[in-house]
Design a protein around this nucleic acid. Structure first.
Length: 112
DNA sequence: TAGGTGACGGACC
DNA sequence: CGGTCCGCCACCT
C-alpha cells in the first residue's frame, strides 16, 4: 500500500515541508500525517531517497528518541543535519541529542 | 524465493 | 538515564 500509492515520497516531502524553521518533527509524526501510521521507517527511506541539496527541510525530522539518527550509511548527512539544526537555533550535543519536547512541532488536525 | 538490514517506535529492564 | 527486544515494512543482496 505504502509503496503502491502514487508518489509516497512526494507525500512525505510535502508533509515535511509543513514543518516551520526552528521546529522539529518525528518520522512517526510525518507518517501519521500522510495517513501511514506505523510506517515511520518508510518515511526514513523517503528522506534517504531525497537528493541533496534539497528544498525540503529534511533536517527538521528526527526520531522519537529526540536525537539525530547517526549512521555511517548516511555519508555524513547526519552531521550536516546537526549543523543545519544548530543554525536554526536548536542546540544539539555531540551525541546528536536535542530538546525534542521543547521544539516539537504541532501538526495541523486536518492535513492531506 | 529467502533472509538480512535499516535516517523508526514502543514496551521492558 | 541507558541498553535490549520485538513489531513493523520496503529495500538489497
Amino acid at each position: 500500500m505504502v509503496d503502491g500509492s502514487p508518489g509516497f515520497d512526494q507525500r512525505v516531502w510535502a508533509a515535511v515541508a509543513l514543518v516551520p524553521a526552528g521546529r522539529l518533527a518525528t518520522y512517526g509524526q510525518i507518517a501519521e500525517l500522510i495517513g501511514a501510521y506505523g510506517c515511520a521507517r518508510q518515511v526514513g527511506w523517503a528522506l534517504r531517497r531525497l537528493s541533496l541539496p534539497s528544498e525540503v527541510p529534511w533536517h527538521r525530522i528526527v526520531n522519537a528518541r529526540g536525537c539525530i539518527s547517526l549512521s555511517l550509511s548516511r555519508e555524513g548527512s547526519d552531521w550536516m543535519q546537526r549543523e543545519l539544526l544548530i543554525s536554526e537555533g536548536i542546540p544539539v550535543d555531540e551525541q546528536g541529542r536535542l530538546p525534542l519536547r521543547r521544539y516539537l512541532w504541532r501538526p495541523p488536525p486536518l492535513a492531506v
